[in-house]
């Protein structure tokens, strides 16, 4: 009996099994958890983390690191709101935000891959620069959205499910495909798994890393636009601390910080675990301060599980 349990938990699907068990327990014990309203709210609450974790997964898998995501989300939201306000065109605002996000990511990538500056330091710097730009542009205040059409982005529904959740699901599917089936995705894992071997095999390691960061910026901009639409304004202080939640979700989902190991399904589970933990604590009226402690404990537990699993399977 215990041997079977051990095998299940330490196997590839260990996290998924734990997740299903936890979900079942929570559904049975927490009132109002398993309602359509709450489920949709839960999914909406993880949209930002979920979207950004798609590319953070690629970034970590290639042995890189990105702390600037929270700032890019806020900055892109600001750009979207300000440009559409001044030009009167929502598509123009969205386009500008996407371009701005991708540009920041591209700069990150070039500095890291070409100038060989440590990713942690580089993105720590851009994190502050970009946040500063968002504050400067708005003079530190929230900028309201003029055109109500902008709200529609997050309010519109398809089959009863809000658009941002659809976009998140679409990105999950897209990046699962990218990671597993495309040259770009496999090269990403190869670069993280053994950079030197990848270089010797003819993989363009530098450009691979640059594109990952540029894509990360672009995807952050998507999250930023949706967030601005949901909170009906561009907020220069939006999404602070997002980078840590996103990295937590990825690590929870079995992405290795040493690179070379990542699955989209794992990351989705990681995102949902974080979302459920928060949701349940809200439903139980647990003070927000405790949520930090619980999130930290969940992260530690997940990493410990992963280490035990690695040892059990004799991974190196």
């Amino acid at each position: 009996m215990t041997a079977t349990v051990k095998r299940l938990l330490l196997g590839e699907q260990g996290l998924l099994i734990l997740f299903v068990l936890a979900f079942a327990v929570v559904s049975a014990t927490v009132p109002n958890f398993l309602t359509e309203r709450n489920m949709l709210g839960l999914l909406q609450s993880v949209v930002t983390i979920g979207i950004v974790s798609c590319t953070m997964m690629l970034c970590l898998a290639s042995r890189d690191f990105d702390l600037s995501v929270g700032s890019i989300v806020a900055f892109a939201g600001m750009v979207a709101v300000m440009v559409s306000n001044s030009s009167g065109s929502i598509p123009l605002g969205i386009g500008a935000a996407l371009a701005a996000g991708a540009a920041v990511g591209f700069v990150n990538g070039v500095v890291i891959a070409r100038l060989h500056i440590n990713a942690l330091i580089t993105t720590l710097a851009t994190m502050q620069i970009v946040r500063g730009l968002a504050l400067i542009a708005s003079d530190g205040r929230a900028v309201g959205i003029n055109d109500p059409g902008f709200y529609a982005l997050s309010l519109s529904r398809f089959l009863g499910i809000p658009a941002p959740v659809w976009i998140m699901a679409l990105l999950f599917a897209l990046f699962a495909f990218v990671l597993n089936r495309t040259v770009f995705g496999r090269n990403t894992l190869a670069i993280g798994g053994n950079p030197e071997a990848s270089r010797l095999s003819g993989v363009d390691v530098d450009w691979g890393r640059i594109w990952i960061f540029a894509l990360q910026g672009l995807v952050c901009a998507i999250a930023g636009i949706l967030l601005a639409s949901r909170i009906t304004s561009g907020q220069p202080n939006a999404a602070t601390g997002l980078e840590l939640s996103v990295i937590s979700a990825c690590v929870l989902g079995g992405v290795s910080l040493a690179g070379g190991r990542a699955t989209m399904s794992g990351v989705i589970v990681g995102v949902l675990i974080l979302g459920i933990a928060e949701n349940v604590m809200n439903l139980l009226n647990i003070q927000a301060f405790y949520q930090y402690v619980v999130r930290g404990l969940i992260l530690l537990a997940a990493v410990l599980l992963d280490t035990v699993r690695s040892r059990a399977s004799g991974r190196r």
């Binding site: 496999r186 090269n187 894992l189 190869a190 798994g193 053994n194 030197e196 071997a197 990848s198 010797l200 095999s201 003819g202 993989v203 290795s256 070379g260 190991r261 991974r315 190196r316």
Partner: peptide, 17 residues
Amino acid sequence: LSLVPGMSIAENLFLGR
């Protein structure tokens, strides 16, 4: 040391091409 441990045999053979 020129193999990528987390990838399959086939992927290692075709790495970069």
